[in-house]
Amino acid sequence: MAVLDIRDVSKTFGSVHAVQRFNLTVADGELVCLLGPSGSGKSTLLRMIGGFETASGGQITIDGEHVTRIPPEKRPTGMVFQSHALWTHMNVFRNLAFGLKLRRLPRDEIRRRVEAVLDQVGLAGYGQRMTHQLSGGQQQRVALARSLVLEPKILLLDEPFASLDQHLRERLREEVRDLQQRLGITTLFVTHGQDEALALADRIVVMRDGRTEQIDPPDMVYRAPATPFVAGFIGSMNLIDGAVQNGAFHHAGFTLAVPVADGPAILAVRPEALDIVQASAAGAAHVHRVTDFGAHAIVDIELGDGVRLKSQVPDARLWKAGMAIDLQPRAFAVYRDDVAIHRADRA
């Protein structure tokens, strides 16, 4: 039963603001993903929660208890590191038992708990192996087990699967999700992979330059990105810089009626929501290239001024390079000053 609360937390390294007045409450048993490009401050934030960095300002509480200034060895958090950071001079059993030994638990109890956790991560019987005898996936499971065996209140994962190949990453991702739900452990997961975040999280925190861009469940982050940055970062997105005049968005011959005030604007349309039709006359754009993926096709579109867009179409054979076309966005959003001022979904 643990609630993590982060209030106004900042971190500066010299003149660099790594994290700026960050706020987040993670509910008991919730899995929250911190998602952002490298340098967005997500790892720094995680390390502040784990106690490896001291916050320059703000407060972190776990179950109402202030931990902001407590060193990592005294915090009820368990961290799984990107490089798994196993102690290579110890075997698997001793890696897991180390923390329990420091707590001076009886030998039998240690053995029982280590074996139980090894069983949970699917590594029963691997206790006597040395860490270098394990595969990458197994090593990462040991790292996870090493944190879990201490029954932490908060589990922190810092891009744990970054060094694994795609296939293994997906499998471990599911295992972690299952385990987390079974144990009901409050979890914070840092990743720069949107797939990972979308697949795992109860909620996603999108970060950029040390600030929060959006905190929402995965479907909301995908369907209603709060800012152009989120729109561009998650999934594939056409972002068109233009201006609204007299109720219509304009960009190089392309126009779209939008009910917003005049001024500069960014139009965001996902390729799957951008329909194209053959133009009767000159058309707003033309087909640049068609790439057939079998199940669907991607049409690269070139606007009058050379700006490229993508549209996902069901059948590649209908489109040829050079063809004049008109654009018909089905669902789109209009951003101004980093805020969505209009959303439309004609699905």
Binding site: M79, L86, W87, F98, G99
Partner: peptide, 18 residues
């Protein structure tokens, strides 16, 4: 000795001496 393996040890409760 990687930073992370030391941090992992502190995470499971080891003080500087341990």
């Amino acid at each position: 000795v990687s930073d992370q393996s030391i941090e992992a040890a502190r995470d499971v409760g080891a003080n500087r001496r341990s």
